[in-house]
Structure formats: structure tokens, C-alpha cells
Simulated assay, not measured.
Amino acid sequence: MPPAWIGVGDLDLFHTEDIDYAHRLNQAGVACELVEVPGMYYCADLLRGNAASVIGFRASLINALKTALVQPHRGDLPVN
């Protein structure tokens, strides 16, 4: 499987499930970056887009996406 990025606030309703999923991915050998933001709740990135914690959260997400799109992971088919 390709690397994963999971971002969650510690006030999110699915916080426990997201953390557990990230740990299970790692245990299965899937690279997974977990970003946990204190004080952030579900949809905070939509409701409080200018908050410093949300800006950092989005930057981490965008960086992970850029890395995934630019750097092929192991198991990719070779490009001819």
C-alpha cells in the first residue's frame, strides 16, 4: 500500500479510531504519518481556516500530498 497521512484533532469525535488506524497501518508495514493537533475539533479546518494550528495542519497535509505525488513509493510499476 502507498504511504498514508492521517490528521486529526484531539477533540475530534473519531480521534480514537483515527489513532488506532494509523497504528494498525504502521504495524502492517505501511508508512503512515500521524498528525494530532491539540484543541482541534472535526471540521476546524473549514470553520477556523486562519487559526495558526489549522494553518500548520494544512501545511502538513499539502506537504504529504506533494511528497506522494513527486516521489514514487516502493511497489510502483516502472515508467517506460
Rank of each mutant, 00 (worst) to 15 (best):
P2W: 04
P2C: 06
P3I: 15
A4M: 15
W5N: 10
W5F: 15
I6A: 05
G7Q: 04
G7T: 00
G7R: 01
G9Q: 01
D12W: 00
F14V: 15
F14A: 13
F14E: 11
H15A: 08
H15C: 10
T16H: 10
T16P: 05
E17H: 05
D18C: 15
I19R: 05
I19F: 00
I19T: 08
D20L: 13
D20E: 14
D20M: 14
D20Q: 15
Y21H: 09
Y21L: 09
R24C: 04
R24S: 09
L25W: 07
L25G: 06
N26V: 03
N26E: 09
N26T: 06
Q27L: 15
A28K: 04
G29I: 04
G29E: 04
V30L: 00
V30D: 04
A31K: 11
A31E: 14
C32F: 01
E33P: 03
L34W: 00
V35Y: 01
V35T: 07
E36V: 11
V37I: 06
V37H: 01
P38I: 03
G39M: 04
M40I: 04
M40C: 11
M40Q: 06
M40P: 00
M40G: 02
M40F: 03
Y41G: 07
Y41W: 07
Y42V: 01
Y42S: 11
C43Y: 08
C43S: 14
C43D: 14
A44L: 02
A44C: 13
A44G: 08
A44I: 00
D45I: 01
D45H: 03
D45V: 01
D45K: 01
L46F: 01
L46S: 01
L47T: 09
L47V: 14
R48E: 05
G49Q: 11
N50A: 11
N50L: 08
N50R: 11
A51E: 08
A51T: 06
A52I: 08
A52V: 06
V54E: 08
V54R: 03
V54L: 06
V54S: 07
I55W: 02
G56E: 09
G56Q: 09
R58E: 07
R58N: 15
R58K: 14
A59W: 02
A59F: 10
S60M: 09
S60H: 13
L61Y: 05
L61S: 08
N63D: 05
N63C: 13
A64W: 08
L65D: 10
K66V: 05
K66G: 12
T67M: 10
T67C: 11
T67L: 14
T67R: 12
T67F: 10
L69C: 04
L69R: 10
P72E: 05
H73D: 15
H73N: 15
H73Y: 14
R74I: 10
G75W: 02
G75Y: 03
G75S: 03
G75I: 02
D76T: 14
D76P: 13
P78N: 11
P78G: 07
V79W: 12
V79G: 12
